[in-house]
Design a protein around this nucleic acid. Structure first.
Lengths: 140, 140
DNA sequence: TTCAATTTGCAATTATGTTGCAAATTGGAG
DNA sequence: CTCCAATTTGCAACATAATTGCAAATTGAA
């Protein structure tokens, strides 16, 4: 993670009236260390450093202020940094090996969202797109 | 639900070597009664009729043989009948009132999946697309 | 440095999902 | 229709995930 990421992180917390604490900084760094990852993976890494409960609570805070979001990959959800850190993208998720491939697209998806939102008078805020299947190495 | 739906349901169970039981039929009817809905909502309705454990087990069976699938709406997952019952579609989900609007699209999404799958040698099996935002009545 | 407000960690609780097993149900053979 | 092996059910117990109350510690602003 870059120094800028950390600065932005602190800025966002302050903007929303949250304090910058050791637990929050540590938890954020765990989130950045690999992604997307499950809450379970984060809890394991947090062992002895940040309490389970604080991890849950702060992940909740981070989500609320838009620092991270949940992506549903297969059954479980994983946590991922928000677009301002990693850029907007979607996922190809391998059903066999679990590999996640980031994909970009603004044309198809955004066009579609605009079109359908206009049709229903809907005001879109977030979207998620995910494709499950078999990656190059796992297809038989 | 139509009589045809029930017939198809029984046919699919038989095809996969599963018995048609009262618990399964009751659970399927609960699934059809509203959708998409959370497992929790189904468990409440199943009170005194079908045991928790059997609901979980049969929902698992239904998923496995493709009668239903999970859709991730906001945080939670909901259960929805598969395409052969309700047709392939996606969702606009209201962050305020929870309303779910079904939307159709084959052009944008399918084109994009084809394009990106070819690029990465990926073999797509399922996909999910969801837009969260505010519906006509809830936008301020 | 001081202090009110926020946040943390712990213990306890609730929610969600799973497993083993005896009893009941199902569906096919006769 | 009756019988029976195989499947399925419901119960109790267990496992895992997430939340809550509260005293003690930390934070940041004066």
């Amino acid at each position: 993670m870059t120094a800028d990421d950390l600065t932005l992180f602190k800025k966002r917390l302050a903007e929303h009236g949250y304090q910058v604490t050791k637990a929050r900084e540590a938890t954020f760094k765990l989130l950045v260390s690999a992604e997307p990852q499950t809450i379970r993976e984060i809890l394991v890494k947090a062992q002895g450093v940040v309490d389970r409960v604080s991890v849950y609570r702060n992940v909740g805070v981070f989500e609320k202020i838009g620092l991270i979001h949940r992506v549903h990959i297969g059954w479980k959800y994983k946590l991922e940094l928000s677009d301002e850190f990693v850029g907007h993208h979607h996922h190809l998720s391998c059903l066999k090996c679990g590999r996640v491939i980031d994909i970009e697209d603004e044309k198809h998806i955004d066009d579609f969202i605009k079109e359908v939102s206009a049709k229903f008078g809907f005001e879109p805020r977030r979207h998620q797109f995910e494709v499950d299947g078999y990656c190059k190495d796992c297809r038989s």
